[in-house]
Design a protein around this nucleic acid. Structure first.
Lengths: 212, 212
DNA sequence: ACGACTACTGAACAAGCGTTTAGCGTATTG
DNA sequence: CAATACGCTAAACGCTTGTTCAGTAGTCGT
């Protein structure tokens, strides 16, 4: 009777939202049916509509919930990161991500969907993070921690995109290097190489090579 | 009657495949109906099934077609790249991509779908590219063009993933920096910063900072 | 005690889906 | 000149989808 995973003692509405979040993250919005979500939450399909108006309403609620979770992650770290970077190990979006979300959380996968389906929610999220990255990079340059960039707008995008790529291609990376890069061991190995490349470079400059 | 875009004088089968490729790339497999594909190709829905057996058969054919296009891109460049890197500007996957596919080609977007939907075709593609990247990086290290990595497996993944990220997040990057990074101007700006970071580094090493 | 309200369900609905079927016209083949 | 095969279509089939409807059980304020 109860094939559902009752997450603690949450309300049915919260259970539906959580089930939808996980299923949407795993398989995409279109591939998941209202009946599946209802079954995963242990309720009837009609209750889903009763609480959220429609499947699109549920989708919007999930987008909102996930967006809040992501923003909370970064707003709490704006000061923290500012000193983390002047101090010891330089943090990355991917590192923060892995640390903030416990293993098995559907949120990284949901972020992937948000950024890949070209919906406004994903675009807005990226825009906010890009602005944050630019601000951070400017501060770091002033502090002398970051080398000045010839094209700051592109450099900020370059660094942000590189970090997000790890989240987006997590599964493929895991298959390639044999470790899930969003687990503690994976983070350590990844951060090691990222730090090395970002401080010492990866290639040797060849003569007569300039950006054209 | 002919709302279709007859691409030259191709056969109806090829027209269907091309229409499906474009629609799949734009909106994802599940969000596109057989009727839409048929309408885009200017044929009846039944003909789609007649030629490809089923919608999944069409999807497999499109996957195959796109996979061949991607592999051709890289197999033709294995030698070419080997000398390109020892010589002048160091190429990137994204650069090759942008140069190989004319503006407006659906293939970059289709690659995005392949890599983000966790289907075997995308995983296989990534695996092949990862192997290629590792080989290339080893050669470059031997030649003294690349700095030796402490963790070569991770470094290869890091560099590959960073390149792919530009393709995956193309739209968001375009919105952020104001230029589509897969156009000639965009490539130039992006390559400039990428080269700078990869040769000179982006951050200044701080004392007592080591991986882990 | 009683109506009102909320959480919730089983059954059904119309619409859209992928697919099937029967058949059209036009070639190619013996 | 029949016969077979191919490219192609209109119409319909069965199924699944999101959603609606009518109604049940429990709770709350009066």
């Amino acid at each position: 009777m109860s094939s559902a995973v009752d997450e603690g003692d949450l309300t049915a509405k919260a259970n539906i939202r959580n089930a939808a979040l996980r299923l949407f993250a795993e398989r995409g919005h279109d591939a998941v049916t209202v009946r599946e979500i209802a079954a995963a939450a242990g309720v009837s399909p009609a209750l889903v509509v009763h609480h959220f108006g429609s499947k699109d309403g549920l989708r919007a609620a999930v987008d909102d919930y996930a967006g809040q979770a992501f923003d909370a992650l970064f707003s709490m770290d704006e000061h923290e990161l500012a000193e983390a970077l002047t101090g010891g190990s330089l943090g990355s979006v991917a590192e923060m991500f892995a640390r903030a979300f416990p293993h098995g959380s559907p949120l990284p996968a949901y972020l992937r969907r948000l950024l890949l389906v070209n919906d406004p929610a994903g675009a807005a999220l990226f825009g906010r993070w890009y602005a944050l990255t630019r601000r951070l990079l400017d501060s770091m340059t002033e502090l002398g921690v970051a080398r000045p960039a010839e094209d700051p707008a592109v450099r900020a995008a370059f660094l942000l995109v590189n970090d997000l790529a790890l989240v987006l291609l997590r599964n493929q990376v895991a298959a390639a290097i044999g470790v899930d890069p969003l687990t503690p061991e994976g983070i350590a190995r990844w951060a090691g190489e990222a730090t090395a490349v970002y401080t010492k470079g990866a290639f040797v400059a060849t003569p007569g090579q300039e950006s054209s």
